[in-house]
């Protein structure tokens, strides 16, 4: 009797004991996901190996589209330009959005008065549709009627007034910050859930050991927050390199002005679907190649990152 209980509590034994039914658990999710996400994407990725003339697929061209993407102008320089913007997107979001979200989650966790209100307030922008967000901020950032410039004027900061979305120096940063405004509340929720799942005994124990301030943060909070930090970093990374909707809603498919807000996904959309005024593009093949490159880049980076954090997690 005793022995069976002991083996059952070992991981190996448990799964043998619980028979094959457990393998049904992931099936529903796999089927729907496979049918409506994996299949269409894989089918479409095959386009990257074909040449296109308008809508008709012509012939199998192997890796020609990939070569074209990197060696033919203007694709090559557009790719590099857009890639740099994605990197900035990621960096700025990690600092301005996730950094702030971590601090805010910590403050709420520390039980400020009105915590409920703040949680809702931070999260509220996330409820809006991206179209609404884009439209709203376009108006706020409008150079002549926009709230921001008017506020700056009233504060006597006229020299800071500018055409935020029309000036290539500020357009991309403005969009990224709007994205931070939009996504902040989600980060707060994730970090807060992380803080709150830290067992209270651990913190008590550490406190009894005399830990406080930075030591507390370094030794207790940060290691135990690794799962949520990891989730947010991976999500921000993926979201930054796929940044599309907000840029498209605010600046259209040309990454205006003068490609200063172009991102890889916008570039892809332009290649695959064309811009709205010029009809559709001939570049479905090159566009699919770009999507494939983007996919493998994100895949590899995420794998490296997860491997790295897995190790860290084990060490701690």
């Amino acid at each position: 009797m005793m022995t069976t209980v002991q083996t059952a509590s070992k991981k190996k034994g448990r799964k043998i004991g619980k028979s094959w039914t457990i393998h049904l658990f992931p099936i529903p999710a796999l089927i729907i996901y496979g049918l409506f996400v994996l299949y269409p994407i894989l089918a479409a990725l095959s386009y990257s190996f074909y040449s296109f003339n308008g809508f008709s697929r012509e012939s199998f061209v192997g890796f020609d589209n990939f070569v074209t993407l990197f060696t033919t102008e203007p694709y090559g320089s557009m790719f590099i330009n857009a890639f740099k913007h994605n990197v900035l997107y990621f960096g700025l979001q990690m600092v301005a959005m996730n950094g702030l979200a971590f601090i805010l989650a910590f403050i709420i966790y520390k039980k400020v008065k009105g915590a409920e209100f703040f949680k809702i307030a931070f999260f509220l922008p996330r409820l809006l549709s991206v179209i609404v967000v884009g439209f709203l901020w376009k108006l706020i950032l409008n150079p002549n009627f926009g709230t921001l410039n008017i506020l700056l004027g009233r504060l006597g900061l006229e020299e800071l007034q500018r055409a935020w979305l029309g000036d290539p120096n500020t357009a991309l940063v403005s969009i990224i910050l709007v994205n931070c405004w939009f996504g902040l509340g989600f980060g707060v929720l994730i970090f807060l859930a992380g803080f709150q799942s830290i067992p209270g005994e651990l913190i008590e124990a550490a406190r009894l050991d005399g830990a406080k301030g930075m030591t507390m943060l370094r030794k207790i909070y940060l290691p135990l927050m690794v799962p949520s930090i990891m989730i947010m970093t991976v999500l921000t990374f993926i979201q930054s390199f796929e940044a599309f909707e907000l840029v498209y809603a605010m600046q259209g498919s040309m990454g205006e002005p003068y490609y200063s807000t172009d991102t890889l996904a916008v570039f892809f959309y332009r290649l695959a679907f064309g811009s709205s005024t010029s009809g559709s593009s001939d570049a479905l093949g090159v566009g699919s190649a770009l999507a494939a490159v983007l996919f493998f880049f994100i895949l590899i980076c995420t794998m490296i990152f997860l491997k790295f954090t897995n190790k860290k997690e084990v060490e701690m």
Binding site: P143, R162, A163, G166, D167
Partner: peptide, 11 residues
């Protein structure tokens, strides 16, 4: 107009 680089159709 001033700031013409930031003005679009609606503006």
């Amino acid at each position: 107009p001033a700031n013409s680089e930031g003005l679009g159709m609606d503006d």
